[in-house]
Structure formats: structure tokens, C-alpha cells
Amino acid sequence: MTSKFSATLSIDQNGTILCSDCEKQLCSREEIWKNYAIVSEQPMERTCGSTYTVSKDVLLRQFYCPECGSLLDSEIALSGDPFLNDTVRG
């Protein structure tokens, strides 16, 4: 039995955050799940094509499930920006 943590993540009865696609356990809800995801940072234009011609400093930061590779979250960031860490207390 799980409930939603975000659009792409679930949380089970023990408070463990899971990938909603493959149910890979990432961490407990007290921890920052993004620290347990695969992270990629790439310049926006390289990722999205010529309509995304923006400052070279602008990065598309993406978080993937380390098990199935599903895209779990995306952020626009400058290099060194902290992760946007959301918490759900239920």
C-alpha cells in the first residue's frame, strides 16, 4: 500500500520513498531523495534544441531512478544551486 509523494514518487507505509514506475526504494522520507537518484546537469540548449537558446550558465538538472532510469524530476539551475528539496510529512 503506497500513497503519492510527488508526481513520480510514492511512499510506502514504512515511510520509504519509492520510484512509482519500478518501486525501487530510494530512501526514508526523512532523507533527501534526490541524493539517492542519478543526477545529470546539462546546458539547456544541448538538451532541448535550438529554441532553447539561453545563457550558457543555464542548466537543466534531471533526476533519474537508479533502477529503471525513469525521469523523476527536473529543475532549472545555475551551477552550484542547491537541489530543490521538497518534503512531504503526510
Binding site: T8, M44, C48, Y52, S55, L71, S74, I76
Partner: peptide, 20 residues
């Protein structure tokens, strides 16, 4: 909104393209 996309995506979705 020319140097930074401002239409953020959700649940992993990409942002919309910036203006030009």
C-alpha cells in the same frame, strides 16, 4: 525570459522554451 526559461515543467517535465 529570454535567457532563462520561466515555464517550469512538473514531475520531470521539461520547461517550455524561452522567448526570443
Amino acid at each position: 525570459g529570454t535567457e532563462y526559461p520561466m515555464s517550469d515543467g512538473l514531475g520531470g517535465g521539461y520547461p517550455g522554451a524561452p522567448s526570443n
